[in-house]
């Protein structure tokens, strides 16, 4: 699997992301600077977390309009798998690759903690190694992770099986008490209509190294490595 991790000024999670991908696929991703305009020959493109452009104007707004994102959009339209985590999810919504937007957390606090996620959509290329209903515990670290979309969009996402993760507790309960940031319908991650563009606020890459405590993010990367075995 040949992969690229996009780097904007202010991105800070590219190394953990690259480590996680390498752990699962055996191949180190290319780190691609935001001024590049072409992304050819990749099976997977990742927009990692951080604070691109200092979160100026809106989180992800500047990055979403940068030249490299036009190349990411083109690649997505060709069927290349695209993963956006945290700020990367915000950027994918700003580019229009994913519906909705990420608002300020309902509690007005930056949330940096472990949280439980319930897997819903378990399909290639991102989540076929998970089983529907499976609960994993991974970290979140965000100030604007409060997913918003209008009711019609939410109904469509649910109807089309495009909700990948919801916030829950250890028992898998999804309700207002397990919704850590105010996201509508507890949504933590969604895919586009093709299923090949995934955006999520939690950080699976932070849970891929036993030495750091958790490996529950590994199935996502193993799924990708399995699904995107390149020629």
């Amino acid at each position: 699997m040949k992969s690229a991790v996009i780097l904007f000024p202010g991105t800070n999670r590219e190394k953990d992301m690259a480590d996680a991908i390498e752990r699962a696929s055996g191949r180190r991703p290319d780190i691609v600077w935001h001024r590049e305009t072409a992304l050819d020959g990749y099976d997977l493109i990742v927009v990692p977390g951080g604070f691109s452009y200092g979160d100026y104007l809106r989180c992800g707004a500047m990055a979403g309009n940068s030249p490299i994102m036009r190349a990411v959009k083109d690649a997505a339209n060709r069927g290349v798998a695209v993963l956006g985590v945290c700020n990367g999810f915000q950027i994918l919504t700003e580019t229009g690759l994913l519906p909705g937007a990420l608002l300020r957390n309902a509690g007005l606090k930056f949330i940096c903690k472990y949280t439980h996620l319930k897997a819903e959509r378990c399909a290639p290329p991102f989540t076929q190694r998970l089983t529907p209903g499976q609960v994993t515990e991974v970290a979140v670290a965000h100030n604007e992770g409060n997913y918003f979309a209008d009711d019609a969009t939410l109904d469509r996402l649910e109807g089309e099986g495009r909700i990948v993760f919801r916030y829950c507790d250890a028992a898998g309960r999804v309700d207002a008490t397990t919704n850590l940031n105010g996201s509508r319908r507890n949504i933590a991650g969604i895919v586009d209509t093709t299923g090949r563009v995934l955006g999520m606020m939690p950080h699976p890459e932070d849970a891929t190294d036993a030495g750091l405590g958790k490996t529950e993010g590994m199935p996502l990367f193993e799924s990708v490595a399995e699904a995107l075995v390149s020629a």
């Binding site: 104007l57 700003e94 519906p99 909705g100 937007a101």
Partner: peptide, 9 residues
């Protein structure tokens, strides 16, 4: 429409 506002929200 392109940058200053996000018309989703």
């Amino acid at each position: 429409r392109k940058l200053l506002a996000n018309t989703v929200i």
